[in-house]
């Protein structure tokens, strides 16, 4: 293989990796929107908190245990749980009060939360970029036969679909998942069957938040350094993904994420300055020809 095709393939792989991380975010957004009808503008901020809490957990573990070995794996579990708990608190004490009101209040609340969280992150960790280490075990590259590819990215490419699959199975194969899906259709009826729908809402928001947090941890070693405005571009990108894939559709969110990731990768190779614009152009084109998105229901 010539140098150029290897470059193209590795760039496509990068697009895939980024796409799949976006897919995790978009899936969380979709679960929250599908069940609760809430468009969560705080999703990017939850991703930000995921990245920073993982960073702190890694640093703390490194300090206590001496070496950095293993600390990433603790962070990989701890950070999503922490963000999930934050989601639970947000839903229980704040978001819950907005359901009965006009939708603009949800926008204001979740958007406001983004500002508050971003400011808190700046106060706690400072505004300067912090470098996010790659776990020892996954440093270096793997020889795939046709090219060398970073171990860590390959790990993300394998782990993330497994997590998506697990969430999908939870939603499709379990009774709790059936309750969540039933709740998207008819809340009152679910209530009439003796199920506390409000509690289900809290759990759903928490799962969505944890997925954003997980995306934050996984993205850390890929972007290499983190700073408090991290969530903004990601929020925008995951909204593009959800719109392209089809609002409320899981498979759409994943397909949209991979498409957006690949388009971004290819355009940043050919015309890097315009790659963001082209992603938005893609969204516009999809909306013109398929207003419901690629896999959205009408």
């Amino acid at each position: 293989m010539t140098f150029d095709t290897t470059l193209i393939i590795s760039q496509l792989f990068n697009g895939l990796v980024w796409g799949i991380v976006l897919g995790l975010l978009a899936m969380g957004l979709t679960i929250i929107f599908g069940m609760m009808g809430v468009i969560n503008f705080a999703h990017g901020a939850l991703y930000l908190v995921g990245a920073y809490s993982a960073y702190t957990s890694i640093m703390a573990c490194t300090q206590w245990m001496g070496a950095a070995t293993g600390s990433f794996w603790i962070a990989l579990v701890a950070a999503p749980i922490a963000v999930g708990l934050i989601g639970m608190v947000v839903e229980f004490f704040l978001l819950r009060r907005m359901y009965e009101r006009e939708i603009i209040y949800q926008f204001l609340l979740t958007f406001g939360l983004t500002l508050v969280i971003q400011e808190l992150v700046t106060i706690i960790w400072g505004g300067m970029p912090r470098s996010f280490p790659t776990p020892d075990l996954l440093q270096g590259v793997v020889d795939l036969g046709f090219m060398l590819y970073p171990k860590y990215r390959l790990f993300v490419l394998i782990l993330t679909p497994l997590i998506m699959l697990a969430v999908w199975l939870l939603l499709v194969k379990t009774r709790y998942g059936a309750i969540i899906r039933a709740g998207t259709e008819d809340r009152d009826m679910v209530n009439l069957l003796g199920i506390n729908v409000r509690r289900v809402f809290t759990v759903v928001f928490s799962i969505g938040a944890a997925m954003a947090g997980l995306a934050g941890v996984l993205a850390g070693p890929i972007i290499g350094s983190i700073q408090p405005d991290l969530g903004n571009s990601v929020l925008l990108a995951s909204f593009v993904v959800v719109v392209v894939g089809g609002l409320g559709s899981f498979t759409g969110a994943i397909a949209g994420a991979i498409l957006v990731g690949l388009v971004k990768a290819v355009t940043s190779m050919l015309w890097a300055e315009a790659s963001n614009a082209i992603v938005f152009a893609l969204m516009a084109v999809v909306l013109v020809f398929m207003p419901q998105g690629l896999l959205g229901k009408r």
Binding site: R181, E185, D186, M189, N191, L192, L193, G194, V197
Partner: peptide, 22 residues
């Protein structure tokens, strides 16, 4: 409603309200 249901009152509403995607 969910507390009432847990006491043993079940309602079959007028429009049946079957979950169509389930």
């Amino acid at each position: 409603p969910f507390e009432v249901a847990r006491l043993g009152i079940a309602m079959v509403p007028e429009e049946r309200r079957i979950f169509s995607s389930l």
